[in-house]
């Protein structure tokens, strides 16, 4: 069984935002709503400045608070792929999952009233393709693959470089790893 993860190599991100556009087009994300975002952070005092590009999305946590707080099991952890997915037919729109997510990556689809979020493009992955954001990434900053396969791009990237996850102390055990040139910002 595959163990899908995403690695975001921040050193390679050029901030073109093509991942956001590709995600919106692929998943028909409604206007003014997003499944992924890019954060541009400038730190330090002139002239010692540094800029960080960080793309954020659903972390597909192994210990997902959104799944635990869902009263109808609309949010669930897929046993086969490890992805955190959502069954729109069961969602009542109580928004407990949105409030429970420490990464603030969920939203309510205004047309359907159903909560929505990144699915790692599961419909593409089952067809043997990469998520739309990873496919379109010009700098190959977004790397997707099976962590259990030692020859996969994600395994090699994580073996070569130190990586980190976001909000580690929340204990959510995210499946999105970040490779940062500067290390963890102070």
């Amino acid at each position: 069984m595959p163990n899908y993860v995403m690695v975001v190599d921040q050193r390679r991100c050029v901030g073109c935002m093509a991942c956001i556009a590709a995600c919106k087009a692929e998943n028909e994300v409604p206007p003014a709503h997003f499944r992924t975002r890019v954060i541009e952070k400038v730190e330090g005092k002139f002239p010692e400045l540094r800029m960080e590009h960080r793309s954020e999305l659903c972390m597909h946590c192994d210990n997902p608070p959104c799944v635990y707080n869902c009263p109808t099991r609309a949010s669930y952890k897929d046993d086969e792929t490890g992805m955190v997915l959502l069954d729109p037919d069961r969602c009542v729109g109580c928004k407990a999952c949105i409030a429970a997510c420490p990464y603030d990556v969920r939203y309510t689809n205004p047309k359907t009233g159903v909560v929505d979020k990144c699915t790692f493009c599961s419909h593409r992955v089952v067809a043997g393709q990469q998520p739309a954001c990873a496919t379109t990434c010009v700098g190959q900053s977004r790397i997707f693959g099976d962590l259990d396969d030692p020859n996969s791009d994600v395994s090699r990237a994580l073996a070569k470089n130190p990586s980190e996850t976001l909000l580690k102390s929340a204990g959510t055990e995210p499946r999105v790893f970040y490779i940062n040139k500067f290390g963890t910002p102070k």
Binding site: F34, V38, I39, A99, D104
Partner: peptide, 19 residues
């Protein structure tokens, strides 16, 4: 520190307002 977020959902930024 200066932060620019592209792709932020109004529901969660600058702070959550779901309930």
């Amino acid at each position: 520190m200066e932060i620019t977020v592209t792709g932020a959902n109004a529901l969660a930024f600058p702070n959550l307002l779901v309930w």
